[in-house]
């Protein structure tokens, strides 16, 4: 095994730590702040963040394309979007600094991260689209509720 050093910087080198212990406590502080922000938002649920930023485009092909590309802003509550982004940020720092992914080779990093991200996005997309379809079917038909 090669003798490689730990990277001591986070935020793309903007924040450098003197030792690995300091970096661990720094990342812990950052993760704690994110969690506190999430909890505060989860309790307050500001009204302004409960309705989507934009409404769906109507019209032809371009409107459909715009609806697909801007779907997080059209079909999601901004609050949920914020939660999901913050979760991914937290996941990044847990993986990169606690699991030392930052210090692994590029090939290992891509093998683990890209594989998982691709398969998860694929699965989530299919299941959520299908779930929404069934919801629409229920809405217009009379079917026993919990089969």
């Amino acid at each position: 095994m090669g003798h490689h050093e730990h990277s001591l910087a986070i935020f793309r080198g903007r924040l450098k730590f003197k030792s690995i212990e300091q970096k661990i406590w720094g990342v812990f502080t950052f993760l704690s702040i994110i969690t506190i922000v999430e909890v505060i938002f989860g309790i307050i649920k500001p009204e302004s963040l409960m309705v989507p930023f934009m409404s769906a485009f109507e019209g032809g092909f371009m409107a459909t394309m715009a609806n697909i590309f801007l779907s997080p802003f059209i079909f999601m509550k901004p609050l949920n979007l914020i939660f999901i982004v913050l979760t991914i940020v937290k996941a990044y720092y847990i993986t990169w600094d606690f699991m030392h992914m930052r210090d692994e080779t590029k090939a290992l990093r891509r093998m683990v991260v890209w594989t998982a991200i691709f398969l998860i996005c694929y699965l989530v997309l299919i299941l959520l689209v299908e779930g929404d379809y069934i919801f629409e079917v229920y809405k217009s038909n009379y079917i026993k509720f919990d089969f």
Binding site: L127, L128, G131, D132, I134, F135, Y138
Partner: peptide, 8 residues
Amino acid sequence: GFSRFKFV
């Protein structure tokens, strides 16, 4: 998520 979307 699938089940939740079904009964959203």
